[in-house]
């Protein structure tokens, strides 16, 4: 219980610091939302009036305190440009990003598990080398290149999927593949490494001695034991997916958080930028906490330790 409370306190402090940091950064960079809204020719008095109405005429420290006070009441403020509550704008876009991140993770697993298992099973032989090369290539290809290439092959060449947009399940495939590719590469190496470690353990030898086939020993005994580090990595990756979807979302015109954040930065929409970044950081923290919980479920040893 104490551990749980400490965890909540740690998390809150981290989020508070992140919120302050984001607030400071977005206010420090050049560019002014009032200029974006009123244009260059606006009169000084009109500018001042709008600035006062938006609360931007207050000293930064006062604005920060106001921001914290509102945050304490779960109020993220209203978008400067659209006038709508930031929370609503975030909730509008969150499902699309979650859908994309989830699909990317599924793709990453579908690719990395078989590749990693093959690489570990045939360690040092040609299947391993092929799997490792595939992983290396996946890791080295940047999203902004992979996205258009996948479009060229699957949409233009084969005519299988829509090019971009949110037009049903078909349009999810290419962005999810793009986003999932680098994760799959890292995961493949992780699955291989932790499987190799486990395959040498006595319990795998025992399982084989019991008469289990190599494949059955691997799937039933080695894989669950090798899953722990892979799971940690997946947890971190899901957080990374929520934040890192920006480029992929832009390429595929996916109406998620990433494109919302880019537009908000472009327009210097301070509350909206803060809201987006805070949501992304919060999801990192929550996912990490969930990963730790999943540990206990997967591996009874960690339960006893904590």
């Amino acid at each position: 219980m104490t551990a749980l409370l400490r965890r909540v306190a740690d998390t809150s402090l981290t989020l508070l610091l992140v919120a302050g940091l984001v607030f400071a950064l977005i206010h420090l960079i050049p560019g002014d939302p009032v200029d974006v809204m009123l244009g260059e020719s606006a009169h000084a008095a009109d500018r001042a009036a709008l600035r006062a109405r938006l609360g931007l005429d207050q000293p930064i420290s006062v604005q920060l305190l106001d921001y914290y006070a509102a945050l304490a009441q779960a109020d993220l403020g209203a978008s400067l440009h659209q006038g709508q509550p930031v929370t609503r704008l975030l909730l509008d876009r969150l499902p699309a990003t979650l859908q994309l991140a989830g699909a990317a993770l599924v793709f990453a697993l579908l690719i990395s598990l078989p590749l990693g298992v093959v690489a570990a099973r045939f360690a040092g032989r040609s299947p391993d080398r092929v799997a490792s090369s595939v992983a290396l290539i996946g890791l080295s290809i940047p999203n902004f290149w992979l996205g258009p290439v996948l479009i060229l092959v699957f949409s233009i060449g084969l005519g299988l999927t829509p090019v971009s947009g949110d037009e049903g399940w078909g349009s999810l495939i290419l962005p999810a593949l793009t986003l999932g590719m680098s994760l799959a590469a890292i995961n493949t190496r992780m699955v291989r490494a932790s499987l190799l470690e486990v395959l040498d353990q006595p319990f795998v030898r025992t399982a084989r001695a019991k008469g289990l086939s190599p494949i059955a020993a691997l799937v039933r005994h080695a894989l669950p034991n090798a899953a722990l580090p892979v799971l940690t990595l997946l947890g971190l990756q899901l957080g990374h997916l929520l934040a890192g979807a920006v480029i992929t979302e832009t390429i595929f015109a996916w109406p998620g958080l990433g494109s919302l954040l880019i537009d908000a930065i472009r327009q210097r929409d301070y509350p909206l930028v803060q809201g987006c970044v805070l949501l992304i950081s919060a999801s990192y923290v929550v996912i990490n906490a969930l990963t730790d919980t999943a540990y206990g479920w997967l591996d009874p040893r960690t339960r006893r330790l904590s």
Binding site: G147, G165, S259
Partner: peptide, 18 residues
């Protein structure tokens, strides 16, 4: 009106008839 920020993707969407 569909917003497609990436010019390459916009061009490809036109070629594909989207």
């Amino acid at each position: 009106f569909l917003t497609v920020a990436d010019p390459t993707v916009r061009a490809l969407k036109l070629v594909r008839g989207e």
